[in-house]
């Protein structure tokens, strides 16, 4: 199959491998599934290391933040209806400012969580960066040669509708497995990883 020329053109190094994974890396690039991103770096990236794919959690998993915001606005509107609040303009204005600031914080938190919950696949390793809360984040990585098994699970209605799932990467040793949570196209990502592992074992990359 001919490789399409596009913004995320597959580098010659990977095209020459003749593996099926290159087919998954063609087509439209989005913030959720970004093949061969340019000007992207991370701590510990080697000079000759190529970033193959950057994946983020599917946007549907962040829709709950909009529901929380909607709930807060409804509660605030109900409180404004109470006579003791509505009769005091200063208290009413202050309550709405508190409500707007809280909603803004929730939306910004959702955006930052989406942006920094990032999974990176390079030709050397896989990296899982998790923004767990405003007070903590975690980063796990595994070199390709240490990966023993890759499994994906698609459970629930949302996974069927939006083709999202969780990828489990089991590494050698007692270290906990790496999880790519609720990513789009988990089967394709699994195939990409298997092809990369095979190429790595053969010493092609």
């Amino acid at each position: 199959m001919a490789i399409k020329e596009g913004p995320n053109k597959v580098p010659r190094k990977f095209r020459n491998l003749g593996k099926s994974f290159t087919e998954h890396l063609q087509g439209e690039s989005s913030y959720f599934f970004m093949p061969f991103p340019k000007n992207l770096s991370f701590v510990g990236k080697d000079k000759d290391e190529n970033v193959i794919l950057v994946i983020r959690t599917h946007w549907i998993m962040y829709i709950r933040y909009l529901f929380i915001v909607l709930f807060i606005i409804i509660v605030a509107a109900l409180i404004s209806g109470i006579s003791i609040v509505s009769e005091n303009p200063s208290l009413l204005v202050s309550m709405w400012i508190v409500c707007i600031l809280t909603c803004l914080s929730i939306l910004v938190y959702g955006f930052i969580r989406w942006f920094y919950n990032v999974n990176i696949i390079t030709d050397q390793r896989v990296i899982d960066l998790d923004f767990t809360s405003a007070l903590s984040h975690s980063s796990s990585e595994a070199r390709l040669e240490r990966i023993e098994d890759v499994t994906h699970k698609q459970i629930g209605v949302l996974s069927s509708v939006f083709d999202i799932g969780t990828l489990y990467i089991q590494t050698a040793g007692a270290k906990a497995e790496i999880e790519f949570d609720n990513i789009p196209k988990p089967r394709e990502v699994q195939d990409i990883l298997y092809d990369l592992l095979e190429s790595k074992q053969k010493g092609e990359i």
Binding site: K38, V98, I120, H137
Partner: peptide, 25 residues
């Protein structure tokens, strides 16, 4: 209000760390 201010400050500090860990355009 106090929690919001603290949260915004913590988010700013966390993003400052994360932007060094993972840098993109």
């Amino acid at each position: 209000l106090f929690a919001n201010m603290l949260f915004a400050l913590m988010m700013y500090l966390r993003v400052r760390i994360l932007s060094d860990t993972f840098s993109s355009p």
